[in-house]
Structure formats: C-alpha cells, structure tokens
Simulated assay, not measured.
Amino acid sequence: MEKRVPVFFFAPFVSSTMRVSPAWIDYNGHMNMAYYHVLFDRAVEEGFGLVGLGQDYLEERKASFFAAEIHTLYKRELKARDEVRVTLQLVDYDEKRIHYYLEIRHAVEGWVAATMEGLSLHMDMKTRKVSPFPDDIAANLAVMKAAHARLARPQTLGRVIGIPTRRDLLEPALAGGTRH
C-alpha cells in the first residue's frame, strides 16, 4: 500500500518551534545533555514524517527506522524557556539507511546550540531486522536529497572525537605557511 506524500522539501527542513522545559534544567543551570536529544528526536520525527516515515507508517506498514549511530556537538548552553527550532539536512541515503545532520538553533537569536550527525536504519518491525525502503519512501527520500544537495556540506560531518595533539593545532597554520 503506497501513500502519496509531498514531493517538495524545504532546504533545510525547519522544525516547529520548541521550548526548553524548566524540568530539563540540571544543577549547572542549563539544559541537561539528554534533552538536546529529545529536541533532535522531535525534529527527526517531523522531518522524516514528511517522506512518509511517521507513526502512520509504523501502524499501517509495520516498518520504522531506528537510530544506529549519532555524534553530537554541544556548542552553547540552552536555558529554561529558550525557544528553539531544529534544522534537518538529509546528507545521503541508500536502500536501507539514512544519513542526516541537524542543528538546534535559538529561535529568536539564531545561534547554534548543538549539532548532531545521525545514521538510521530502516526496520521491518515484524522481523525486527533491517530491510529496504519501499519504492515510494525511497522516491520521497530522493526528492528530499535533491533539495538538500544544494546546501553546503556541514563542516562537522564525520568529525572524530579525540584530544588534539599540538601538531593538530599547528597544522592549519603550517598549511598556510610560506611557499618556495
């Protein structure tokens, strides 16, 4: 049973406005790291719901998508009652996976509070195994990817976690050094 969904996507997708709940504030006086993922997750649901991967998809077609890997970069504190919007960029997809990038932005001032790179797997919920996207969903992902392909590649994609060495810190300066 194929469903008809929108064939036009904004680049990037921008979530509805969300507010930081006072209950999410930790003893440091800012939003606890777990709740950044609540905001990211809500935006993923909104954005990929447009391609047909929402709750209806689970109920009607007994399939969904699961997070397989994420990388989060926390850039700036969020405080109680801050309003945010999350942008989503589809970076790539194949027959069973979607690779995407998100930014939590302050809804009024526009600064970036956090970024997340994610890889999710399409799941057959009857077998609980990874399975190919149906043709209609793959077609919608193709349209979304084409719209998002015009966006710049996020600088933090593929970022590796680690403590930089002194050489790593100097390398950019060395690369721009004198020429012979």
Score class of each variant (00 low, 15 high):
M33E: 14
V84T: 00
E59W: 11
P172L: 08
L121A: 11
L119K: 15
S120A: 14
E2Q: 12
V7A: 13
D136N: 04
N140T: 06
D94S: 01
A23Q: 14
R153F: 08
R19E: 12
T72P: 00
V20P: 07
H37T: 13
V44K: 13
D41M: 04
Y27M: 07
M18N: 04
N32P: 07
P134T: 03
I70L: 13
P164I: 13
Y93R: 01
P154S: 03
E46G: 03
A114T: 05
A146G: 05
D136M: 02
L121T: 05
P172E: 00
A113V: 01
D136Q: 06
S120R: 07
N140F: 05
Y35N: 04
L141M: 09
R42W: 10
L174N: 11
A114P: 00
F40P: 03
E171T: 15
R19V: 10
L53V: 07
T87F: 02
V143C: 10
M123K: 01
R153K: 13
E95I: 03
T178A: 15
D92H: 11
A80G: 06
A80C: 05
Y35A: 04
A43L: 10
Q89I: 04
E103N: 02
V5Y: 11
V20F: 07
M125R: 12
R150K: 15
V91K: 00
S120D: 00
R159S: 15
P132Y: 03
E117P: 11
I137W: 03
